[in-house]
Amino acid sequence: MNQPLLEIKDLKTYFYVKAGTVKAVDGVTLNLDPGVKMGLVGESGSGKTTMALAVMRMIKPPGTIQGKISLNGVDLVTLSNEEMRKARLSQISMIPQGAMNSLNPVARIRNQILDGLEDHGVKLSKSEANDRLAQLLQIVELPTKVADMYPHELSGGMKQRVTVAIAISMGPKLIIADEPTSALDVVIQRQVMETITRLVRELNLSMILIGHDMGLMAQSVERLAVMYAGKLAETGGVKEMFADPLHPYTQKMISSLPVLGRRGVFEGIQGIPPSVINPPPGCLFAARCPKVIAGTCQEISPALREVRPGRWVSCHLYN
């Protein structure tokens, strides 16, 4: 058994605001092996993006990060700011959510790519820089002339490809793709997603793919993690999770997906997720859960435990 690339242990991201404590991410424990793609799904506000930002240590005050995030055995939480800055892009990089707006509107693509290299100590002569740019753009299937263009001259898909080129430019081990295709139409979505998966495979990267699109997840990832109200509900291999979901939330979610050949009204999950500002004790899904155990679920918060090898669930049903 090799050592996991990313080891997240009891990660808590709390925002201390006037209204109380916002527990955006509350006690997430997660392992990611090298070369594995993991999907992270959950409703809006369930803490997916916050967790991604926490892993990159980009949470701004009044937010705080507690717990352990170790990458290749190095605990990122204890790094100095400067060490963490250098780790971004060279160890972990991000493919951002808003493809349309993630590039600096007043700088040429060339500079936006080279800025990252330069600030990680890569010194290139003019011709070396050109070669590197051409190579990076070619990897993401863009013509070389894009280097001298401005973001507004590119389409959404092209912009997203540029961000992918930037993300891999320093050869990171882990890529966090935060809904990389949600701003694009379905055709472009597929093309960009294919490029990303191909690169992850070729460069032997690990990836955390954040999104709501279960179909996309089924196609692109090997493991799946389901978040609910800042906590991890369930993780496991993507096939097992679809075939045999354990947590009632996952069960409801998967049964709400449309199935080819079956007509009818899909059920969905009744109710709305609870507020994560000063959350109540007990399981946060209890109020919406069809299998709620009276007296237990509302009182005691279920711990995340490994019920089968590689299969973690936080639910009282499996105690």
Partner: peptide, 29 residues
């Protein structure tokens, strides 16, 4: 609040480059 500010930080750029080239440069217009 713009996405390019977040992405600039995710790129691991130095603080001053983010401040002058990505933030101030755009806010100046």
């Amino acid at each position: 609040g713009e996405d390019y500010a977040t992405f600039a930080e995710a790129k691991g750029l130095t603080t001053w480059r983010v401040f002058f080239r990505y933030l101030l440069r755009n806010a100046l217009l």
